[in-house]
């Protein structure tokens, strides 16, 4: 998902870093040493990571909605249990990532506020609707497949807490992709109507998935610095190519057609060449005008507000117990 975060302009004023500390930091990155929370780091590194990790976390949290939409309508108890587990994993992934972001000195409340107010971005992919059950297959197989391409290199990110969170996430993400493939595969072997449903989902999700890798390399901001600091290991276009190369044979295996007339195997390089991505759609969705942007943020805000009394009650209860315990101890001491 999540390379998208790296491609935004850094608007904060640039800080002049101590040259000696910066040189030492860059040497550590070059030597593949892990940077930990309390270590010295340039302000731009800290800001870039806070932005990237929190956008990744927001994506996981918002990402529960398109699939949560189908939990009550899953076609069998097995599918329902699987989908529930997957959505629960996404909540977990959001938590690991928020925790990693917090080690950089930003509070959970600030991060929450940025998401709820619409100030922070999340992956463009979650602003598309999930119209049929086949979309649960397409999300697992394609969306999580694309996410894994992005996330595996992040397991080696120079920032220790992020890299460790990504290792956990990648292990669990593999289940997500396989269950999605299985749903799509099952539909593709089903009745003509079921197969058509799988094809329709592929038609709708393919291009948005290619956009998940972010703008083409020529237009991408920041990549040099992020590469030097070992935050980003592969360019957007490299990852997108890997994704296409991996997915085309899987679609062929299931007898499904990738919705791209220009797609063909380039025998010389062994890579698939593919058609032009509609970047105006990407920009529209990312800037808030996708099919579901308003719905997603509204649902998130409603859930947060509806849970406010629970958080308040839990804190009040904890405080009451703390005071009662203190009073008992005081009496025992007297």
């Amino acid at each position: 998902m999540y390379a998208q975060a790296l491609d935004q302009k850094d608007r904060a004023p640039s800080v002049v870093e101590d040259a000696e500390q910066l040189a030492r930091f860059e040497a550590r990155c070059a030597a593949e040493e892990k940077i930990e929370a309390k270590d010295w780091m340039p302000e731009a590194y800290r800001r870039t990571l806070i932005r990237q990790i929190s956008q990744h976390a927001h994506s996981e949290i918002i990402g529960m909605q398109p699939e949560g939409n189908w939990i009550t309508r899953a076609p069998s108890l097995k599918r329902k249990a699987v989908l529930l587990s997957k959505v629960q994993d996404e909540a977990g992934h959001g938590h690991y990532l928020y925790s990693a972001a917090e080690t950089l000195g930003v509070s959970r409340e600030e991060l929450n506020e940025q998401l709820l107010s619409g100030k922070a971005k999340y992956s463009s992919i979650f602003n598309y609707p999930t119209l049929t059950w086949a979309d649960m297959g397409a999300i697992g197989w394609l969306v999580d497949g694309a996410a894994i391409m992005n996330q595996i290199p992040l397991c080696r990110c120079s920032y220790g807490p992020y890299a460790r969170a990504m290792i956990r996430i990648c292990k669990e993400e593999s289940f997500h992709q396989r269950q999605g493939f299985e749903i799509t595969h099952t539909l593709s072997k089903g009745t003509p109507a079921q197969k058509a449903m799988a094809q329709d989902a592929l038609n709708r999700w393919w291009w948005p998935c290619l956009m998940m890798f972010g703008p083409p390399d020529g237009e991408s901001q920041h990549s040099d610095q992020s590469t030097r600091w070992k935050i980003k290991r592969f360019s957007n276009d490299e990852l997108r190519q890997k994704f296409v190369d991996a997915m085309v044979p899987q679609a062929e295996f299931m007898g499904l057609m990738i919705p791209d007339r220009d797609l063909k195997l380039d025998e010389a390089s062994g890579h698939y060449t593919f058609g032009t991505i509609d970047w105006s759609e990407f920009k529209r969705v990312l800037s808030g005008d996708g099919p579901c942007n308003r719905q997603r943020l509204k649902a998130r805000n409603e859930a947060h507000e509806a849970g406010a009394w629970v958080r308040e009650a839990a804190l009040a209860h904890a405080e009451k117990r703390r005071l009662r315990k203190a009073a008992t101890m005081m009496m025992a001491a007297e």
């Binding site: 938590h95 925790s99 917090e102 460790r164 839990a314 209860h317 904890a318 117990r321």
Partner: peptide, 11 residues
């Protein structure tokens, strides 16, 4: 393994 926010030990 990581951290989390909670109102008290039990939660």
């Amino acid at each position: 393994v990581g951290s989390l926010h909670a109102p008290d030990d039990t939660m």
